[in-house]
Design a binder for these strands. Structure first.
Lengths: 190, 190
DNA sequence: CTCTGAATAGAGCGATCGTTTTAGTGAGGG
DNA sequence: CCCTCACTAAAACGATCGCTCTATTCAGAG
């Protein structure tokens, strides 16, 4: 077998969670999409749906981190690097027909009051992405406090812009966010 | 009767949608929360769940618009006005126990690929809020193009910051966004 | 009074939910 | 050879989903 059944389940669950959220995605649908049977899903994830979701979110988190790292490294100047991130998100979103947004937001919002592990996994994801941006700024000579605040701001703005872009079926919000974030980052440069 | 049954249904649906999203909220739950019966819900909303949701989202949209208008008018200086918005959101979010976030985001994300009226209602909401911010900036003498872009950016950043704040159960993302948005707005002033 | 129609009340429909259970398959070690 | 055990397969469970249906209540028009 090319890819293991377990991996196929995680990848399928990740994509479905990204598109339909946690409540909107059924275990049976995950099994079908992964070309696995229900028995296999519960064999690899005895904890049930929530366990599958946590694994899927962690997978998506790592995948998005790689994408973010690549976009940040594609430009020397930090302001241009941030714009490149927005540009990259806009491209992928448009190509997916506006369906593949942030891989964790939908699941996070649905499980907020339920103190499941999902919320923690999403919090870890956001924190990690903020750190990636902050690290880039640190490498560019930004003071620690500014880098940290800007890291948070960049991820928040991209998050919101991606949602807005999806709802409006337009990449403009992401492009605007990219421009304004670049201006903001530039306002710090000495 | 103090409030009409129809209004109680809309208000209850609005709150539930805000907290659990569209898929996670059941018609029977809405009826129960509204102190109405299933028959009443389908009497006032023959279109079913989606019709209720659209009415609820429109209600939430107007409610949030009023809140935004008030926060924007509370400060003369546009940068401080934007910060006041973030501050206001942070206060309400903390007081609700991190459950009452943006009233449309969750529902919007869950119904993206389903071409329902819900998506359009959410798009209208976001557009209206952006316009409120843009209007404030126009009144402060900003050029039309800058006001429009900043309006989009402010709403996107607040949107993302609110989600991040909810997931992390901390108001810090909203406070950071408020500060950075103020800096961004300030960078335009002549 | 009767009649009417809006509004309320809740039983019940088929479908699907997450999960459990039981049976079957097949490669590897004794 | 048989036995083991990780894995696959699918039937079935109770609960809940959105929705339809019928019955009932009740205020106002004639």
């Amino acid at each position: 077998m090319q890819t293991s059944t377990r991996d196929r389940i995680v990848v399928a669950a990740a994509r479905l969670l990204q598109r339909q959220g946690y409540v909107g995605t059924g275990i049976k649908q995950i099994a079908q999409e992964a070309q696995a049977t229900l028995g296999s899903v519960y064999h690899f994830f005895p904890g049930g749906k929530e366990t599958v979701a946590v694994a899927a979110i962690r997978h998506s988190t790592e995948e998005f981190s790689a994408l973010l790292r690549k976009a940040l490294d594609s430009e020397e100047d930090p302001a241009e690097a941030v714009t490149a991130c927005a540009r990259q998100l806009a491209d992928e979103l448009r190509e997916s027909g506006w369906t593949d947004g942030c891989p964790v937001t939908a699941a996070a919002l649905e499980t907020l009051g339920t103190d499941s592990e999902i919320q923690q996994a999403c919090a870890d994801a956001l924190r990690g992405w903020e750190q990636l941006v902050a690290d880039k700024l640190l490498r560019c000579g930004f003071p620690a406090e500014s880098a940290r605040e800007l890291g948070t701001m960049v991820i928040c703005a991209l998050e919101g812009a991606e949602v807005t872009a999806q709802v409006n079926r337009s990449e403009e919000p992401l492009l605007v966010a990219g421009r304004q974030l670049a201006r903001l980052v530039g306002s710090y440069e000495v």
